[in-house]
Design a protein around this nucleic acid. Sequence first.
DNA 1: ATGAAAGCGCTAACAT
DNA 2: ATGTTAGCGCTTTCAT
Lengths: 349, 349
Amino acid sequence: MANLKDIAKETGLGLGTVSRALSGAPRVSPATRRRVEEVAERLGYRSNGLARALRRSQTNVIGLVIPDMENEFYTSGAAILQGVLASQGYRLLLGCNNSDPETDRELLASLVEQRVDGIAHTPCDPDGSRVAREMSPGMPVVEYARRSALDTVDSVTGDEQQGSAQIVAHLAALGHTRIAMVSGPPGLSTTVARVAGFEEACRRLRLRKRDCPQLSGRYDAEWGSDAVLRILRDHPEVTAVYASSSRIVLGVLETLRRAGVSVPGQMSVAGFLNPQWFRIAGPPLTTYELPLREMGDMAAQLLLQRLGEEDAAQRHAPRAVRFEGRLVVRESTAAPRTAPLPRSVASGA
Amino acid sequence: MANLKDIAKETGLGLGTVSRALSGAPRVSPATRRRVEEVAERLGYRSNGLARALRRSQTNVIGLVIPDMENEFYTSGAAILQGVLASQGYRLLLGCNNSDPETDRELLASLVEQRVDGIAHTPCDPDGSRVAREMSPGMPVVEYARRSALDTVDSVTGDEQQGSAQIVAHLAALGHTRIAMVSGPPGLSTTVARVAGFEEACRRLRLRKRDCPQLSGRYDAEWGSDAVLRILRDHPEVTAVYASSSRIVLGVLETLRRAGVSVPGQMSVAGFLNPQWFRIAGPPLTTYELPLREMGDMAAQLLLQRLGEEDAAQRHAPRAVRFEGRLVVRESTAAPRTAPLPRSVASGA
DNA sequence: ATGAAAGCGCTAACAT
DNA sequence: ATGTTAGCGCTTTCAT
């Protein structure tokens, strides 16, 4: 592939002039510029981004690490981030850590090696983005959706705790006193916050702790299935299930349907977050919605601001932005059933 | 950040030795290697991927361009691709063209400039990956899900035409003779194939053309909404709607629900492809499922093979792999209604 | 086993 | 306005 030197040779110009002509720098005569462009075109010249990046110490690439490519919460966030950053000339180098801290660290290390200009990251343990910070202290980093214990990076999160509490309050207002929560991996900041919200609300509303079981597991549909089966078996008096993730609620709903438990007639179900398909689930799901668009925008803005900071001197303090969401009431929640579930259900028959 | 030179200086060794020690090359004494590693560790050395890539003309980055980050079909495909490629040491540079040919071209150009080692691409017009081919003739390219008119690149697609035909056959077998199809952007290879399958099946099953309207639009929920409203108004005798995309069917379902049309009682609905949430939609959706996992794997394999081809000489002919799917019958399709829809529905009251 | 040196393609500083 | 030159940090001959 043709390079600057080829063009210089072909036009008889110097390397520098050609470079300036092509990069739109001033102090190049219009005639020369045209000539260079013409030859570049003819030779099929393509600037070598690697060489440029190496020379300028700037790649115009942002690293993005998310835990799950099949969860619309993260992919939508990625889409928004991508849109904003692309408009500023940045590309996205994408990694997926599958909620595994080991993978996560490797991914971050790899991004640093690639010399990305900044990192957006959904950490999967309290150690969070430490690797990135240590390896490259000046690198702009924003944690998205989840926070680690690190307080030296920017972060954008939702008010998970309040969200959980609102779900419980809504359920309680409908008359439920026995509410089960199915949550994701213990240890994740989101799980911790959502569980905290759940427990706080239960306490405040004077629900008995043993009436409100809380099951932590994974962020996927299979866990939702498992968990709801356990609830049916071990806590047959529960009248409402709050599944604190869209993937979990998928399993919950499917298994309930399969078990012949009607929603919300025999069991109320609430989700968390608000992917498009919640609107047409059977039945449409009550949930707590976070302002995804704003959150993605904010993450991009924080990154962009850091990117604009020339040196350590003008670096501002880390910012942790938390967004409130809102309760969306749909058809999956209603007053508790009056009759107990048939025995066959609990036994899995 | 520390570099090889720093380590060389610190250890008193030569640049080359340090490089070899760190890259695990042979012919370095164990003692030296350990010493170098120790110093590298102490200095917080991180290899500069840019410099390496520049020197070796190999980035270990694969470019991925998809049309829509919020469509699980593509993000799941991306996830699979990412998984396979990561295991071979490749990273993913992600772009989203939003089904806009202009953006698409820019994205491809940008990937070439970044000197990615290969490209996986869902084209959005017949020109497809031409830009990439022209700019960098030897670059491995695989078109995923959609094919362009280019026959010099590998491609992995589903048998969309047969899928469409199977959906229609299923509907006809249930007794439907008036079936509407709502499809995506005209011009996309997927739309063309899906519509062709629809029309072919209608012909074969002797359904009258004017009883089976076909509406092309976009791949999103809003278009599904629009289209189904039009169908209700202009073709009130239609008893089944085939929405050839998961995003379209979302709008169709939601709008039918809102209009008070029961599914499948008053209207059968079929989708296309099989995101997880189809299982718990209200009602669970009949659809044509493509083997996503296999398709993603295949795309990765094709890329990996090309990556392994040393020179133009051993390059093999382009391969177009097409995968068959299977009909998944769920609860959204049933025998046609016997009574006409109430007038109020067609008028949008 | 190690060192020296060339060069990947580019930009930026300096000279003219 | 244009030419020249020195690297960016690395790998890879080629010597030793």
